[in-house]
């Protein structure tokens, strides 16, 4: 190659390399820029819960544990004594647990049926589940309130549990159905040939294979119950039955401007289970999302 061409080629390679780096930088930069607000917001939550004042959003100053005192003592505001936190946590636990149990039981059964049995109404049912998403939540809320009121269930934790579970079940069923679909028919057939009843085959052979799916909807259900706000806010009137979501909501009105530290600490405390689940399940969740969404 002549000298000239060599230089030209070298230059264009260099140019190409620089361009590549530049483009990569822009891409990373843009992604970071878009994600920055989220990072800052959550960083603030952590920082504010342990510092008196927070500078410029997330630089803590005056480290203190005072914000976390609600864990072991009552908070006084004027003459009002705020309720202790632990019964409230228990309420949230009950709601979350209840939703999980109900949803798992019902979704597992239904998901399997939709996946396996040659049920004559399979397709329309599937369509129904998707169409259900079209129903505005507020419509359901008013009617469910009326229904629960007639049953005398308003102002109980059960009302929130049932309502939330009922609304989560279609999605959960669809999700677990995807998992059931992925189980090869041969395994089941083999079990049936070996003399198992349909039920036994399902229980002993198929279920263990879809364990990741069960775990997935269990987590979703638990989080759905833990995070639930509207139902609790609307159905529960007795202050002893408030879950954490309603408690934090009321704190926002009371403690903003006065004690951000306490507010941030309580909010962060409330956020712990979702955050923990979130971190633990990152990889698994991604996989699940891909598998589940693939559909029939």
């Amino acid at each position: 190659m002549s000298r000239r061409v060599e230089i030209k080629v070298k230059r264009s390679i260099a140019y190409y390399k620089v361009k590549k780096v530049l483009v990569k930088a822009v891409i990373y930069g843009t992604l970071t820029a878009f994600t920055l607000p989220i990072v800052i917001m959550y960083a603030w939550l952590f920082m504010q819960s342990v510092s008196e004042k927070v500078l410029l959003g997330f630089i803590p100053s005056n480290f203190t544990i005072k914000g976390w005192r609600f864990l072991w003592q009552s908070i006084k505001f004027g003459e009002v004594i705020l309720p202790p936190i632990w019964p409230i946590v228990l309420n949230s636990l009950i709601i979350a647990g209840g939703v999980t149990i109900i949803e798992i039981s019902i979704a597992l059964l239904a998901g399997y049926a939709l996946s396996r049995l040659n049920v004559p109404y399979r397709e329309p049912l599937l369509l129904l589940i998707i169409a259900l998403h079209a129903f505005p939540g507020i419509t359901l809320l008013i009617a469910i309130f009326y229904l629960l009121n007639s049953l005398g269930l308003i102002n109980t934790l059960l009302s929130v549990i049932i309502a939330k579970a009922a609304l989560e079940i279609p999605m959960g069923t669809w999700l677990i159905k995807g998992f059931f679909d992925a189980v090869p028919w041969d395994i089941e057939a083999a079990a049936l040939v070996d003399g198992c009843s349909r039920l036994k085959a399902w229980y002993k052979v198929v279920l263990p294979i879809v364990k990741p799916g069960i775990a997935a909807i269990a987590i979703f259900a638990f989080l759905a119950g833990w995070n639930e706000f509207i139902f609790a806010f609307t159905f529960i009137l007795d202050h002893r039955l408030y879950p954490l979501s309603v408690h934090v909501y009321q704190l926002i009105g009371e403690f903003r401007y006065i004690d951000y530290t306490l507010l941030a600490a309580t909010a962060l405390f409330y956020c712990i289970p979702p955050l923990v689940f979130f971190v633990i399940t990152q990889k698994a969740f991604m996989k699940v999302a891909l598998v589940g969404v693939r559909g029939a």
Partner: peptide
């Protein structure tokens, strides 16, 4: 993944 109340607080 966060509870709506907490997410709302952050924006507030």
């Amino acid at each position: 993944a966060s509870p709506p109340v907490v997410y709302g607080l952050l924006w507030l």
